[in-house]
């Protein structure tokens, strides 16, 4: 019984991490209409930034957020200007290829600059565990989970109640219409892309005390983030949160009951089945997504 309860909790906690990574992806996916194959690499860069801030400036990784997030925002804006914007009008083939190029580039520039050494960010908090009888909750994971929820709420409020947020929603629902209303589409795209990257930077900072940094850390989380985003419904933030938790649970249970080595295979299979049956995702998409490629 304890094992099952613990599996649920572990699943939810790792699901929180998946959700945290996926929120930025779903934002970019939803608004800029780009599948960012380099998303995991931005995560990796964010983790490196956190590591450097932690090691050279001695700043706690959770405080480092204040530096890392703006830095990632800036990086996102530049990337959008140089790489994404030129192909925005192109085919989805171009979108995918250009981000695959970006993936190669970032992964290997990290290898070139920082070598393949594994780096870890560990503070006293990293090893703290809340224990309730036989149930254990790791502190950094709990924090990441809470931040995922907070970010979801924050994004929701931002989109609902600020002028900029409303403009972003307008663009995601009806590009032409928004343009006619005098919204600067170009700015909205840049901002949304940069915000998505900033969010993955936040995820990176929250994950640094749990994982380790190395140039190929991205792919570990990249594909699962895609699965979460699609399951949750494109551009649907609550969907991303729920999708993340769901995948976490699936992973945890299939690992416990079937085989740890097959848990990825199982959620990929679920992913394909969901795509076949309900391609709009389990929780519905944001408005205006027909043009992304769904009937």
């Amino acid at each position: 019984m304890d094992a099952i309860l613990q599996s649920i909790i572990s699943g939810i906690l790792v699901g929180g991490i998946y959700a945290l990574i996926s929120i930025g992806l779903t934002l970019i996916f939803g608004i800029v209409r780009i599948v960012n194959f380099a998303h995991g690499e931005f995560l990796m860069l964010g983790m490196y930034f956190t590591y450097f801030v932690f090691t050279y400036l001695g700043i706690d990784p959770y405080l480092a957020i204040l530096l890392v997030v703006p830095l990632m925002f800036f990086l996102g804006a530049i990337t959008h200007k140089l790489v994404i914007k030129p192909v925005l009008r192109g085919t989805s083939m171009q979108h995918i290829l250009v981000t695959v190029g970006l993936m190669f580039f970032f992964q290997n520039i990290a290898l070139l600059l920082w070598t393949a050494d594994y780096r870890t960010v560990r503070t006293d908090l990293s090893s703290q565990v809340l224990r309730f009888g036989n149930i254990n909750i790791g502190m950094p994971r709990l924090l990441a989970f809470l931040v995922a929820i907070a970010v979801t709420i924050g994004i929701y409020l931002f989109l609902k109640h600020t002028y900029l947020g409303k403009a972003i929603r307008a663009v995601s629902m009806d590009r032409q219409g928004a343009m006619l209303m005098g919204i600067n589409i170009d700015f909205i795209y840049t901002f949304a892309f940069a915000l998505g990257i900033a969010l993955v930077g936040l995820a990176a900072a929250m994950m640094s005390p749990i994982y380790y940094v190395f140039p190929t850390v991205g792919p570990m989380f990249e594909v699962v983030a895609f699965v979460v985003v699609v399951l949750g419904g494109l551009g649907n933030f609550t969907g991303a949160l729920l999708g993340g938790l769901l995948i976490g649970l699936v992973e945890s249970f299939s690992g416990f009951f079937i085989a740890p080595a097959l848990k990825e295979a199982i959620y990929f299979a679920i992913f394909i089945v969901v795509l076949a049956i309900k391609p709009s995702g389990l929780f519905g998409m944001g408005a205006g997504f027909e043009e992304v490629g769904l009937k």
Partner: peptide, 28 residues
Amino acid sequence: WPALRLRGPFFTLSTIAFAEVVRLLANH
């Protein structure tokens, strides 16, 4: 069966997932 009903990025993602399943099974 599922993939060809999808378009754009959805098709791509489903093929990625499929190949990963095959790889993981071959490994296991």
